[in-house]
Protein backbone atom coordinates (compact mmCIF):
# COMPACT_ATOMS: atom_id res chain seq x y z
CA UNK A 1 0.00 0.00 0.00
CA UNK A 2 1.32 3.43 -0.84
CA UNK A 3 2.43 5.48 2.16
CA UNK A 4 -0.09 8.22 1.49
CA UNK A 5 -2.96 5.73 1.71
CA UNK A 6 -1.66 4.44 5.05
CA UNK A 7 -1.97 7.92 6.41
CA UNK A 8 -5.42 8.47 4.98
CA UNK A 9 -6.76 5.11 6.13
CA UNK A 10 -6.40 6.05 9.77
CA UNK A 11 -8.69 9.06 9.47
CA UNK A 12 -8.17 12.17 11.56
CA UNK A 13 -6.30 11.47 14.79
CA UNK A 14 -5.47 15.08 15.62
CA UNK A 15 -7.01 16.61 18.71
CA UNK A 16 -9.30 19.63 18.36
CA UNK A 17 -7.74 21.17 21.46
CA UNK A 18 -7.85 24.05 22.24
CA UNK A 19 -10.94 24.70 20.11
CA UNK A 20 -12.75 21.94 21.95
CA UNK A 21 -11.74 20.13 25.13
CA UNK A 22 -9.91 16.84 24.62
CA UNK A 23 -11.16 13.72 26.40
CA UNK A 24 -7.73 12.25 26.96
CA UNK A 25 -6.25 15.49 28.24
CA UNK A 26 -9.17 15.98 30.60
CA UNK A 27 -8.92 12.46 32.00
CA UNK A 28 -5.14 12.29 32.51
CA UNK A 29 -4.29 12.62 36.18
CA UNK A 30 -1.85 15.46 35.90
CA UNK A 31 -2.39 17.29 39.16
CA UNK A 32 -2.69 16.79 42.89
CA UNK A 33 -5.35 18.38 45.06
CA UNK A 34 -6.13 18.65 48.73
CA UNK A 35 -9.67 17.48 49.35
CA UNK A 36 -10.23 18.45 52.97
CA UNK A 37 -8.09 19.63 55.80
CA UNK A 38 -7.59 17.61 58.97
CA UNK A 39 -10.01 18.59 61.74
CA UNK A 40 -8.96 21.66 63.61
CA UNK A 41 -7.24 20.83 66.86
CA UNK A 42 -7.38 22.88 70.04
CA UNK A 43 -4.34 25.01 70.76
CA UNK A 44 -1.37 23.01 72.02
CA UNK A 45 -2.71 19.59 71.07
CA UNK A 46 0.59 17.81 70.58
CA UNK A 47 -0.88 14.68 68.97
CA UNK A 48 -2.58 16.73 66.27
CA UNK A 49 0.58 18.73 65.73
CA UNK A 50 2.56 15.51 65.35
CA UNK A 51 0.04 14.22 62.82
CA UNK A 52 0.25 17.44 60.85
CA UNK A 53 4.03 17.12 60.75
CA UNK A 54 3.72 13.51 59.63
CA UNK A 55 1.40 14.48 56.80
CA UNK A 56 3.74 17.20 55.57
CA UNK A 57 6.84 15.01 55.87
CA UNK A 58 5.43 12.10 53.85
CA UNK A 59 6.19 14.14 50.74
CA UNK A 60 9.67 13.38 49.35
CA UNK A 61 9.98 16.82 47.76
CA UNK A 62 8.43 18.92 50.53
CA UNK A 63 5.46 19.99 48.42
CA UNK A 64 2.95 19.66 51.25
CA UNK A 65 2.72 22.42 53.79
CA UNK A 66 0.67 22.76 56.94
CA UNK A 67 -0.72 26.23 57.55
CA UNK A 68 -1.85 27.40 60.97
CA UNK A 69 -5.22 29.03 61.48
CA UNK A 70 -4.13 32.61 60.96
CA UNK A 71 -2.88 32.30 57.39
CA UNK A 72 -5.13 32.83 54.40
CA UNK A 73 -8.21 30.78 53.46
CA UNK A 74 -10.68 32.55 55.75
CA UNK A 75 -8.68 31.85 58.84
CA UNK A 76 -9.01 28.04 58.85
CA UNK A 77 -5.98 25.79 59.41
CA UNK A 78 -5.32 23.98 56.16
CA UNK A 79 -2.93 21.96 54.03
CA UNK A 80 -1.53 23.17 50.76
CA UNK A 81 0.26 21.45 47.89
CA UNK A 82 2.89 23.21 45.85
CA UNK A 83 2.46 21.74 42.40
CA UNK A 84 5.77 23.26 41.45
CA UNK A 85 7.42 20.78 43.80
CA UNK A 86 5.00 17.85 43.45
CA UNK A 87 6.32 15.00 41.28
CA UNK A 88 2.96 13.18 41.38
CA UNK A 89 4.50 10.14 43.05
CA UNK A 90 1.25 9.43 44.88
CA UNK A 91 2.79 8.62 48.26
CA UNK A 92 0.45 11.11 49.99
CA UNK A 93 -2.56 9.77 48.12
CA UNK A 94 -1.66 6.25 49.26
CA UNK A 95 -0.99 7.28 52.86
CA UNK A 96 -3.81 9.80 53.33
CA UNK A 97 -6.49 9.05 50.73
CA UNK A 98 -8.96 11.13 52.71
CA UNK A 99 -6.79 14.24 52.33
CA UNK A 100 -5.27 14.09 48.85
CA UNK A 101 -6.44 12.99 45.45
CA UNK A 102 -5.29 13.14 41.85
CA UNK A 103 -7.21 15.55 39.73
CA UNK A 104 -7.83 14.59 36.12
CA UNK A 105 -6.56 17.65 34.33
CA UNK A 106 -3.66 18.69 32.16
CA UNK A 107 -4.51 22.40 32.17
CA UNK A 108 -2.19 22.98 35.07
CA UNK A 109 0.24 25.63 33.86
CA UNK A 110 0.33 29.03 35.53
CA UNK A 111 1.78 32.43 34.77
CA UNK A 112 3.18 33.02 38.25
CA UNK A 113 5.17 30.70 40.49
CA UNK A 114 3.00 31.19 43.55
CA UNK A 115 -0.15 30.34 41.60
CA UNK A 116 1.04 26.71 41.52
CA UNK A 117 0.21 26.34 45.20
CA UNK A 118 -3.25 24.83 45.76
CA UNK A 119 -5.60 25.75 47.24
CA UNK A 120 -4.72 29.20 46.04
CA UNK A 121 -4.10 31.71 48.75
CA UNK A 122 -6.23 34.72 48.05
CA UNK A 123 -4.12 37.80 48.06
CA UNK A 124 -3.92 41.03 46.23
CA UNK A 125 -4.17 40.03 42.59
CA UNK A 126 -2.64 43.33 41.56
CA UNK A 127 0.74 41.68 41.26
CA UNK A 128 -0.65 38.86 39.14
CA UNK A 129 -2.45 41.25 36.82
CA UNK A 130 0.78 43.19 36.42
CA UNK A 131 2.54 39.94 35.41
CA UNK A 132 -0.24 39.15 32.94
CA UNK A 133 -0.21 42.62 31.46
CA UNK A 134 3.56 42.52 31.00
CA UNK A 135 3.36 39.13 29.29
CA UNK A 136 0.43 40.20 27.11
CA UNK A 137 2.40 43.24 25.97
CA UNK A 138 5.36 41.06 24.99
CA UNK A 139 3.41 38.36 23.15
CA UNK A 140 1.15 40.79 21.31
CA UNK A 141 3.22 40.70 18.16
CA UNK A 142 3.79 36.93 18.21
CA UNK A 143 0.35 35.47 18.11
CA UNK A 144 0.02 33.85 14.70
CA UNK A 145 3.49 32.40 14.27
CA UNK A 146 5.57 31.46 17.25
CA UNK A 147 8.96 29.81 17.10
CA UNK A 148 10.11 27.72 20.00
CA UNK A 149 13.70 26.99 21.00
CA UNK A 150 13.95 24.00 23.35
CA UNK A 151 16.87 23.71 25.75
CA UNK A 152 17.49 20.72 27.98
CA UNK A 153 19.06 22.02 31.17
CA UNK A 154 19.47 18.65 32.86
CA UNK A 155 16.23 16.71 32.41
CA UNK A 156 15.84 12.97 32.93
CA UNK A 157 15.13 12.47 29.21
CA UNK A 158 11.38 11.91 29.45
CA UNK A 159 10.58 15.62 29.12
CA UNK A 160 12.19 15.60 25.67
CA UNK A 161 9.87 12.78 24.63
CA UNK A 162 6.83 14.77 25.75
CA UNK A 163 8.03 17.95 24.04
CA UNK A 164 8.81 16.05 20.82
CA UNK A 165 5.35 14.43 21.03
CA UNK A 166 3.87 17.86 20.22
CA UNK A 167 4.99 17.21 16.65
CA UNK A 168 3.20 13.87 16.33
CA UNK A 169 -0.11 13.76 14.45
CA UNK A 170 -2.16 13.71 17.65
CA UNK A 171 -0.97 17.12 18.88
CA UNK A 172 0.42 18.47 15.60
CA UNK A 173 1.21 21.96 16.86
CA UNK A 174 2.02 23.25 13.39
CA UNK A 175 -1.75 23.60 12.95
CA UNK A 176 -1.63 26.29 15.65
CA UNK A 177 1.23 28.24 14.10
CA UNK A 178 3.78 26.86 16.54
CA UNK A 179 7.16 25.71 15.28
CA UNK A 180 10.42 24.49 16.73
CA UNK A 181 13.45 26.33 15.50
CA UNK A 182 17.11 25.42 15.47
CA UNK A 183 18.45 28.90 16.06
CA UNK A 184 17.80 31.03 19.13
CA UNK A 185 18.00 34.02 16.77
CA UNK A 186 14.66 32.95 15.27
CA UNK A 187 13.06 32.00 18.56
CA UNK A 188 10.26 33.74 20.44
CA UNK A 189 9.74 31.22 23.21
CA UNK A 190 12.45 29.45 25.19
CA UNK A 191 11.15 26.09 26.40
CA UNK A 192 13.41 24.80 29.16
CA UNK A 193 13.36 21.34 30.70
CA UNK A 194 15.48 20.00 33.53
CA UNK A 195 16.64 21.16 36.92
CA UNK A 196 19.41 23.46 35.71
CA UNK A 197 22.73 21.65 35.99
CA UNK A 198 26.05 23.31 36.68
CA UNK A 199 27.12 22.39 33.15
CA UNK A 200 24.04 23.81 31.41
CA UNK A 201 23.81 27.07 33.34
CA UNK A 202 26.15 28.83 30.90
CA UNK A 203 24.69 27.47 27.64
CA UNK A 204 21.15 28.21 28.87
CA UNK A 205 21.97 31.83 29.66
CA UNK A 206 23.77 32.26 26.34
CA UNK A 207 20.79 30.83 24.47
CA UNK A 208 18.45 33.24 26.25
CA UNK A 209 20.73 36.18 25.50
CA UNK A 210 20.93 35.18 21.82
CA UNK A 211 17.15 35.44 21.44
CA UNK A 212 15.71 38.68 20.07
CA UNK A 213 13.13 40.71 21.99
CA UNK A 214 10.33 40.19 22.72
CA UNK A 215 10.96 36.78 24.24
CA UNK A 216 9.25 34.58 26.78
CA UNK A 217 10.52 31.65 28.83
CA UNK A 218 8.72 28.52 29.90
CA UNK A 219 9.84 26.14 32.65
CA UNK A 220 8.47 22.74 31.61
CA UNK A 221 8.30 20.17 34.34
CA UNK A 222 8.73 20.03 38.08
CA UNK A 223 12.48 19.67 37.69
CA UNK A 224 12.66 22.97 35.79
CA UNK A 225 10.42 24.69 38.32
CA UNK A 226 11.96 23.54 41.60
CA UNK A 227 14.48 20.76 40.94
CA UNK A 228 11.93 18.12 41.95
CA UNK A 229 13.46 15.10 43.62
CA UNK A 230 16.72 15.48 41.69
CA UNK A 231 17.76 18.61 43.60
CA UNK A 232 19.80 19.32 45.71
CA UNK A 233 23.21 17.98 44.73
CA UNK A 234 26.58 19.54 44.06
CA UNK A 235 25.60 19.88 40.41
CA UNK A 236 21.99 21.12 40.34
CA UNK A 237 20.18 24.42 40.65
CA UNK A 238 16.71 24.49 42.26
CA UNK A 239 15.03 24.90 38.89
CA UNK A 240 15.92 27.35 36.15
CA UNK A 241 14.29 30.51 37.51
CA UNK A 242 17.60 31.65 38.98
CA UNK A 243 19.25 31.39 35.55
CA UNK A 244 16.66 32.92 33.21
CA UNK A 245 13.44 34.88 33.95
CA UNK A 246 10.50 32.46 33.75
CA UNK A 247 7.07 33.53 32.45
CA UNK A 248 5.19 30.22 32.19
CA UNK A 249 5.28 27.41 34.75
CA UNK A 250 4.20 23.93 33.69
CA UNK A 251 4.21 21.35 36.50
CA UNK A 252 4.48 17.60 35.97
CA UNK A 253 7.14 14.94 36.15
CA UNK A 254 7.25 14.88 33.20
CA UNK A 255 4.49 17.28 32.08
CA UNK A 256 2.21 15.60 29.55
CA UNK A 257 2.12 16.99 26.01
CA UNK A 258 -1.28 18.52 26.74
CA UNK A 259 0.13 20.29 29.78
CA UNK A 260 3.01 21.71 27.73
CA UNK A 261 0.62 22.77 24.98
CA UNK A 262 -1.65 24.41 27.54
CA UNK A 263 1.33 26.30 28.90
CA UNK A 264 2.36 27.58 25.48
CA UNK A 265 -1.17 28.68 24.60
CA UNK A 266 -1.84 30.22 28.00
CA UNK A 267 1.39 32.18 27.83
CA UNK A 268 0.59 33.45 24.35
CA UNK A 269 -2.98 34.32 25.25
CA UNK A 270 -4.18 31.89 22.59
CA UNK A 271 -6.58 29.80 24.64
CA UNK A 272 -9.96 29.81 22.99
CA UNK A 273 -12.91 31.25 24.83
CA UNK A 274 -14.65 27.91 25.35
CA UNK A 275 -11.60 26.46 27.01
CA UNK A 276 -11.08 29.53 29.13
CA UNK A 277 -14.68 29.20 30.26
CA UNK A 278 -14.05 25.58 31.13
CA UNK A 279 -11.04 26.49 33.24
CA UNK A 280 -13.10 29.06 35.08
CA UNK A 281 -15.73 26.39 35.73
CA UNK A 282 -13.13 23.95 36.98
CA UNK A 283 -11.68 26.52 39.31
CA UNK A 284 -15.13 27.21 40.67
CA UNK A 285 -15.69 23.49 41.28
CA UNK A 286 -12.29 23.00 42.86
CA UNK A 287 -12.87 25.83 45.29
CA UNK A 288 -16.25 24.47 46.24
CA UNK A 289 -16.70 21.68 48.78
CA UNK A 290 -17.42 18.86 46.28
CA UNK A 291 -14.27 17.85 44.42
CA UNK A 292 -14.55 14.59 42.50
CA UNK A 293 -12.37 12.01 44.09
CA UNK A 294 -9.73 10.47 41.84
CA UNK A 295 -8.79 6.86 42.39
CA UNK A 296 -5.29 6.34 43.77
CA UNK A 297 -2.91 4.85 41.31
Amino acid sequence: MAWILRGLKEGVVTTSYPKRPDGYGDSYKGALRVSTSPPAAPEGDSAAAAQATAIASCCPTGAIEQHPAQEGLSGQPHLSVDRGRCILCGICVQSYPELFYFEPSTETSKLARHSLVVPEIEEGDAQLSAVRADLARRVKALRRSVHIRHVDAGSDGSEEWEVAALLNPVYDIHRLGLFFTASPRHADLLLVTGTGTAGMAGPLKRTYEAMPYPKIVMAAGTDAISGGIVHPTYSTHPGIAGLVPVDIWVPGSPPSPFAILHGILAGLGLLSRSCAAKIARQDAVAHGPSGSKGAPR
Binding site: C89, D156, G228, I229, T233, S235
Partner: peptide
Protein backbone atom coordinates in the same frame (compact mmCIF):
# COMPACT_ATOMS: atom_id res chain seq x y z
CA UNK B 1 23.80 17.12 31.96
CA UNK B 2 25.62 15.69 34.95
CA UNK B 3 23.22 15.97 37.90
CA UNK B 4 25.17 14.00 40.50
CA UNK B 5 22.03 11.92 40.83
CA UNK B 6 23.80 9.01 42.57
CA UNK B 7 24.11 11.20 45.64
CA UNK B 8 20.35 11.70 45.87
CA UNK B 9 19.78 8.03 46.74
CA UNK B 10 21.89 8.31 49.86
CA UNK B 11 19.64 10.93 51.46
CA UNK B 12 16.32 9.16 51.04
CA UNK B 13 14.47 6.21 52.55
CA UNK B 14 14.06 3.24 50.22
CA UNK B 15 10.44 3.92 49.22
CA UNK B 16 11.45 7.41 48.07
CA UNK B 17 14.80 6.40 46.61
CA UNK B 18 12.99 4.32 44.01
CA UNK B 19 11.54 7.61 42.71
CA UNK B 20 15.09 8.80 42.08
CA UNK B 21 15.87 5.55 40.25
CA UNK B 22 12.93 6.27 37.93
CA UNK B 23 14.54 9.59 37.02
CA UNK B 24 18.08 8.41 36.32
CA UNK B 25 16.98 7.54 32.79
CA UNK B 26 13.50 8.94 32.46
Amino acid sequence: KHRGIERRFERLPVDQAVLVAERVEG
